[in-house]
């Protein structure tokens, strides 16, 4: 039990890092990582939506779609839930904390089309995934493991975003060839980060 929890945490944070190993959520990784502060806001927003989305989609799939034998509708249901959740969260944050809304607000609508959210919802119900996070069989997956995985996958996403934000703040000041400016140099920086994270997959 404890071993599984540790495996899930290490896998979600490092060895199966969403951005650098699984290639999920690359758009915000490239789009809003110009500054460390915006990276942190985006990372927290994504983590929050990821956990909430898993909390709804996993029971929905297990207890409604599977018994009714309409699993094939999962994509439509999931994307609708995520879109509704993001909209709801935006309204709640706007009412509760206008200052938080100022910093996080502009990133929230972008999260609907973030592959990391739909990715985690699809991964935790898929059968080809349990071995990656140290489970013996697909049947061992339950809501708590799914939520734990979603939480740490979000934190792993935040980690990669923050590292990238720090790197890009420095890259901005360097003299770089014109054709390498912008996306290409960011990709090369991401390449070195991915190499560093590759070490965790060898453990």
């Amino acid at each position: 039990m404890l071993g599984t929890i540790i495996t899930i945490i290490v896998a979600a944070l490092f060895s199966q890092n969403f951005i650098l190993v699984k290639f999920l959520g690359i758009c915000p990784f490239l789009g809003v990582s110009k500054k460390t502060s915006s990276s942190v806001s985006m990372g927290i927003a994504v983590t929050l939506v990821m956990v909430l989305a898993t909390l709804v989609t996993y029971p929905l799939y297990e207890y409604i779609l599977v018994p009714l034998k309409i699993e094939y509708l999962e994509i439509i249901f999931f994307i609708f839930i995520i879109a509704a959740l993001v909209q709801m969260l935006e309204k709640i944050i706007e009412k509760l904390s206008p200052s938080l809304y100022q910093t996080m607000g502009i990133y929230l609508p972008l999260i609907t089309t973030n592959c990391a959210i739909l990715g985690v919802a699809e991964l935790v119900i898929g059968s080809g995934f349990y071995a990656d996070i140290g489970l013996a069989a697909a049947a061992d997956m339950n809501l708590w493991f799914a939520l734990l995985y979603a939480l740490f996958a979000g934190l792993g996403f935040t980690l990669a975003m923050v590292l990238m934000g720090g790197m890009r703040e420095r890259i901005e000041k360097l003299p770089i060839a014109k054709c390498m400016k912008g996306f290409p140099i960011t990709m090369v920086a991401a390449c070195f980060m991915a190499m560093a994270f590759y070490v965790f997959t060898l453990i």
């Binding site: 960011t186 090369v188 991401a190 390449c191 991915a194 190499m195 590759y198």
Partner: peptide
């Protein structure tokens, strides 16, 4: 590897 993907794309 995943690092190569970023490199080739860049």
């Amino acid at each position: 590897s995943s690092a190569g993907a970023f490199f080739v794309y860049g």
